[in-house]
Amino acid sequence: MIKINYFYSPEKESEINLEIWKSFIDSGEEGQRIYKEHNNDTYEIQLSEVTEVEQGGLPAIVKDILTASGMSALPVLVVNNKVYKYGSFSLIDAVEDVLDIGFSIQVEEE
Rank of each mutant, 00 (worst) to 15 (best):
G70E: 01
Y35S: 03
Y35M: 03
K63E: 02
K12G: 14
D93L: 10
K3A: 12
A73M: 13
Y86S: 12
H38G: 06
Y6I: 10
M71V: 04
G56S: 13
T67P: 00
E15G: 14
V95E: 08
I16L: 14
I2C: 02
S90F: 05
E37R: 08
K36M: 12
I61Y: 00
D41M: 09
V76W: 04
V78W: 02
L18D: 07
H38T: 09
F7N: 03
I34S: 06
E52F: 10
V78E: 05
I20K: 06
Q106S: 13
E108G: 08
W21V: 13
D93Q: 12
L99P: 11
Y6S: 03
G102L: 11
N40W: 02
V53Y: 05
G87C: 08
G70Y: 00
E15I: 13
S69I: 09
P75S: 13
G56C: 05
Y84T: 05
Q106R: 03
L91N: 09
S72G: 07
F24H: 06
K3E: 15
Y86V: 10
S48W: 08
H38F: 15
G87M: 06
T42K: 04
E52G: 02
Y35R: 02
S27G: 02
M1W: 02
E30A: 09
S48F: 12
I105K: 07
G56H: 08
N39A: 03
N5Q: 11
S14K: 08
E96M: 13
A68N: 01
Y8P: 08
S9R: 11
K85M: 10
G87N: 06
E108Y: 07
T67N: 01
I92E: 10
K36N: 15
K36I: 11
L91R: 06
I61Q: 01
S88Y: 05
D41V: 04
K3Y: 09
M71A: 03
